[in-house]
């Protein structure tokens, strides 16, 4: 008998206020008491059932009304929903966030609760899907077009298909920038226990690099900062400590502007000055002029 069947049986007895216990489950289904306890835990923690042990009755009871969900998801199905939740969370807009919450709700468990996850497959795409859902870094051995392989530590963001091939869009720690990896060229893969934090430039880089495949170049800027900013917030950052100049790449000036304004808010007295390109300096200057009446 499967777990679903046992939980249904247990639930029916709880509704009838028969105060079933682990021993009853164990004897009825010929399973160990430990396994029966796991069934009760699943009902209580995974399905959020208000189940409590009543000492005076020697069994469990519902302390509030409860119905079993109409369907049960396998772990791999939950992983897929968690993956979708994580992907929609990356997209801009209220609708995307609502969908992310919906998928998370159906999946049941919150990603934050899970520190470790089981890998029961050697399929790289399956493993990457899980790593994305759980925001785990990956250590990959990646074969370059020349045939040589190199080790990379990456933050996996999104799997996608193009021309019948699977690709991974990820943030490469070595390059400090977003990259597209062909799955067929990943020769080895290891899931790190380190959790990565979401890079704020994800979406614009994904649009530029992964949706077109035309190898469009990014803008390069040089900015003087009075304090050293958090370099992880930029892509391809090169910090000149003696002159306090940061050289980095970016995709959209509007998003960079928001980032710079937010940096200013993080550090009281923080100043910056765009050294190049000229068009960016002018554009930001004009944006600031339109905002200045509000401050």
């Amino acid at each position: 008998m499967g777990q679903l069947h046992r939980i249904k049986w247990f639930h029916e007895r709880l509704l009838k206020q028969e105060y079933p216990n682990c021993k009853d489950i164990s004897l009825t289904f010929e399973i160990s008491s430990r396994q029966a306890l796991r069934d009760v835990d699943y009902l209580r923690y995974s399905l959020d059932a208000p189940v409590e042990y009543n000492r005076s009755k020697g069994g469990y009871e519902y302390t509030d009304s409860f119905s079993l969900p109409l369907y049960f998801l396998r772990d791999d199905e939950k992983d897929r929903l968690e993956y979708l939740a994580s992907q929609y969370a990356l997209l801009p807009g209220k609708n995307s966030m609502e969908l992310s919450n919906l998928f998370q709700k159906i999946a049941g468990e919150q990603r934050g609760r899970k520190e470790h996850f089981q890998i029961n497959t050697s399929d790289f795409e399956e493993i990457i899907t899980k790593a994305i859902a759980y925001s785990k870094k990956l250590i990959i051995c990646y074969q370059k077009p020349s045939g040589l392989s190199e080790k990379r530590i990456i933050d996996p963001y999104r799997l996608f298909y193009r021309f019948n091939k699977s690709y991974l869009f990820a943030f490469c720690r070595e390059r400090a920038d977003f990259r597209v990896f062909l799955i067929d060229r990943i020769k080895d893969l290891e899931v790190s226990q380190q959790v990565y934090s979401f890079h704020e430039d994800f979406f614009e880089n994904y649009q530029l690099i992964a949706t077109s495949f035309t190898r469009q170049k990014k803008y390069t800027a040089q900015i003087f900062f009075s304090h050293k900013p958090d370099l992880y917030r930029f892509t391809e950052p090169q910090w000149d400590d003696s002159n306090h100049i940061l050289t980095f790449s970016f995709v959209k000036s509007s998003n960079l502007f928001i980032k710079l304004i937010n940096l200013d808010m993080d550090y009281p007295g923080f100043t910056f000055r765009v050294l190049s390109p000229q068009w960016l300096a002018e554009k930001l200057h004009n944006r600031l002029k339109t905002l200045s009446p509000h401050f």
């Binding site: 949706t211 077109s212 035309t214 190898r215 170049k217 509007s254 068009w279 554009k283």
Partner: peptide
Amino acid sequence: PEEPDPLLYDNLGLSDVP
């Protein structure tokens, strides 16, 4: 309606529909 960022010489012709 928003003023677009300029186009890099290097990206001329490299739109999503290339």
